[in-house]
């Protein structure tokens, strides 16, 4: 199994990177762009033999403790069969 994790900034947190990319996109003529938010995509390979339940539990904790800073980020993940 592989856990596909997305870490994004909370809505109230400013995203300077996203703003810079948005401005560049607009200046290049991509006028359909309204806003850009940049986050991280992380893939975590799960050991063979681990149950889906255990994997979900550990990935949830991994996100809380390491991959996301709950002070400013949200996370979501899905676990897929390889």
């Amino acid at each position: 199994m592989t856990a596909k994790i997305n870490v994004t900034l909370k809505k109230s947190i400013m995203d300077p990177q996203g703003t810079a990319v948005k401005d560049a996109a607009l200046s290049m003529g991509f006028d359909a762009v309204d806003d850009v938010r940049i986050g991280k995509h992380i893939e975590v390979k799960i050991k063979d033999g681990v149950s889906r339940e255990e994997a979900e539990k550990q990935v949830e904790l991994l996100c809380q403790k390491l991959l996301a800073n709950p002070v400013m980020e949200n996370f979501s993940f899905e676990i897929t069969e390889d």
């Binding site: 900034l9 909370k10 109230s12 947190i13 400013m14 995203d15 300077p16 703003t19 810079a20 709950p70 002070v71 400013m72």
Partner: peptide
Amino acid sequence: RRSAVQVGDPFM
């Protein structure tokens, strides 16, 4: 009290 966090934008 998470909302107390600000993000710096040195480019700005």
